[in-house]
Write a protein that binds this DNA or RNA. Structure first.
Length: 519
RNA sequence: GGCCCGUUCGUCUAUCGGUUAGGACACCAGAUUUUCAUUCUGGGAAGAGGGGUUCGACUCCCCUACGGGCUACCA
């Protein structure tokens, strides 16, 4: 156990990385950092038929956005090679795997199989018909075309004539395979239930099982932290380490609980896309074959630290009541023992709450780029000073849950209201209002300095003059100035938008409200 | 179907044999806010069912139910 901690995140680039995968990466990262070890990214692209262009770049960009950065691997590392175990893309490691398949063959742990897809289907159908588990195992392999049943000459001949073949693992007949999972404790399987998995495909590529074990060994991985969907193949991997004679270098396993759909059934999947009302991807993703777009946390207005925090708490807890963690605090507190065993449903409300918390902690200036981007999109970027925008950010910050809301809740700082909240007008309007608004208008016009205090003073004076109560009018006045029913403190808004805007907006309200309230 | 993993408030979870079963989100009520929101206070809300073991079980064991995963020359 004094082995250097080295863990890896090993996604296959078959599409956008979904948040379950992100969480797996995060837990690996936290574990590595916690133990002063290494976190690496390996791309498992051994299935050429499922390759999706852009997926790898997407994974890398996602990890960078979230700050879950590997020290080695594709797209990372101190130099272009990615690190000392380059390459980190399994397709580029292709030439290395064959020798390991051969090593198993020579040791009698693997064999050639020549069965065609049709023959395999036939076998499965036959077994199913007789109510037996349809699998290529210790019994069925004796009825199939492989180097255990065919003569040596025949095998040689097939190999030489280029017949397609695969290499299968020769599973021990009836053996209890036990291993200790860092999260679940002892887990055991009987090899009688397993089958002779293909290790090496007819296209010359290894399957996941072979490539994964070989690479973990070569890259000196100390802990395999992955999703629970891999638990059933873990015994195979254990057996492979034994067959290779690498048992002393076998990593410890930790199988993470799955992230479930909020509506009840099944694990959260890539297909869920936007259906659920929250993103399942870190970044926006456009499916290159269908052109279909799925939204991501970044574009939905989440802050990366908030996403990291909420993902960390989904399936792990510190054992205390602390909910908000910086990444350093997460690293310090993290342990596999406190990862829960059962699947967790994603909670949108909690996610929103987390984002709000992080938004509020942000400097006003950190919000500025989001606002400036919106101003630019609306062609207003040259009309207002950056100092003005910064003040808007500070006023509006507490009202936001997501960065992308900033334009919607602050547009009235830049544009006169084009429409008004009718419900408020209808509820609060009465015949005294026009005179009151006029009074405020003239009061403001004759005041030299318009700051929040002076505006409020004038406002209150006019209220008393007109015999109107503040609670009956303030919200209407807010609608008059901003068009909407809620927002930051009104007199601060008024002070910021300034004399001309106030004059214009009050004048407009005097003309419009009378008609609007009748609608 | 088979194998494996799991099961505490609506949701995320604490509890590692003895607690009025705690917290957070959400929800509801009240207070504060001349408006909305914020904030504060309070409230309702849980151990799947059945057997054991034990002086004592949410906690340990077994069975059942339910949920999930896997069962490809996909990862």
């Amino acid at each position: 156990m004094d082995r250097r901690v080295r863990v890896r995140f090993a996604p296959s680039p078959t599409g956008a990385l979904h948040i379950g995968g992100v969480r797996t990466a995060l837990y690996n990262y936290l574990f590595a950092k916690k133990h002063g070890g290494d976190f690496l990214l390996r791309i498992e692209d051994t299935d050429q038929t499922r390759f999706v262009p852009g997926a790898e770049a997407y994974i890398i960009e996602s990890l960078k956005w979230l700050g879950i950065e590997p020290v080695e691997g594709v797209g990372f590392g101190s130099d272009a090679s990615g690190g000392p175990h380059t390459p980190y893309r399994q397709s580029e490691r292709k030439p290395m795997y064959r020798q390991y398949a051969m090593q198993l063959m020579e040791a009698g742990h693997a064999y050639y199989a020549f069965d065609t897809a049709e023959e395999l289907d036939g076998m499965r159908e036959r077994l199913k018909a007789s109510n037996v588990d349809a699998k290529y195992d210790a019994i069925t392999r004796s009825t199939m075309k492989n180097s255990l049943t065919l003569s040596e000459d025949e095998v040689q001949k097939r190999l030489e004539s280029g017949d397609p073949y695969v290499v299968r693992f020769k599973l021990p007949r009836k053996e209890e395979v036990k291993f200790h999972d860092e999260i679940r404790g002892w887990v055991s399987f009987n090899t009688g239930q397993l089958d002779d998995k293909v290790l090496f495909k007819s296209d010359g590529m290894p399957t996941y099982h072979l490539a994964n074990v070989v690479d973990d060994y070569l890259m000196e991985i100390s802990h395999v932290i992955r999703g629970e969907e891999w638990l059933p193949s873990a015994p195979l991997h254990v057996l492979l380490y034994r067959a290779f004679g690498w048992e002393d270098k076998m990593p410890k396993f930790a199988h993470l609980p799955l992230l479930l759909k909020p509506e009840g059934n099944g694990k959260l999947s890539k297909r869920d896309g936007d259906r659920l009302g929250f993103p399942v991807f870190p970044l926006n993703w456009v499916d290159p074959s269908t052109g279909e777009m799925s939204s991501g946390y970044r574009e939905a207005g989440y802050l990366p630290d908030a996403v990291v925090n909420l993902l960390a708490m989904l399936g792990w807890n510190p054992g205390s009541n602390q909910e908000i963690f910086t990444i350093e605090e997460l690293i310090a507190a993290f342990s596999l023992e406190r990862v829960s065993k059962s699947g967790a449903k994603f909670d949108q409300n909690k996610a929103k709450w987390y984002n709000q918390q992080y938004l509020r902690k942000l400097d006003d200036s950190a919000l500025l780029p989001f606002l400036l981007k919106s101003l630019e999109a609306n062609g207003l970027n040259t009309n207002f000073s950056e100092a003005y925008s910064l003040m808007v950010c500070s006023l509006v910050k507490e009202k936001m849950s997501f960065t992308k809301e900033i334009w919607d809740i602050s547009r009235y700082f830049f544009l006169d209201p084009s429409e008004y909240d009718l419900a408020v007008i209808q509820k609060r309007w009465n015949e005294k209002i026009p005179a009151l608004l006029k009074d405020i208008q003239t009061g403001l016009a004759s005041e030299e300095l318009l700051d929040a205090q002076s505006i409020e003073r004038i406002y209150n004076e006019c209220l008393t003059q007109n015999g109107i109560l503040g609670k009956d009018f303030l919200q209407l006045f807010r609608v008059c100035l901003t068009g909407v029913a809620g927002g930051p403190p009104l007199f601060e808004i008024a002070a910021l938008i300034g004399r001309e805007a106030l004059e214009r907006r009050i004048e407009h309200a005097i003309q419009e409200f009378e008609n609007l309230h009748k609608q």
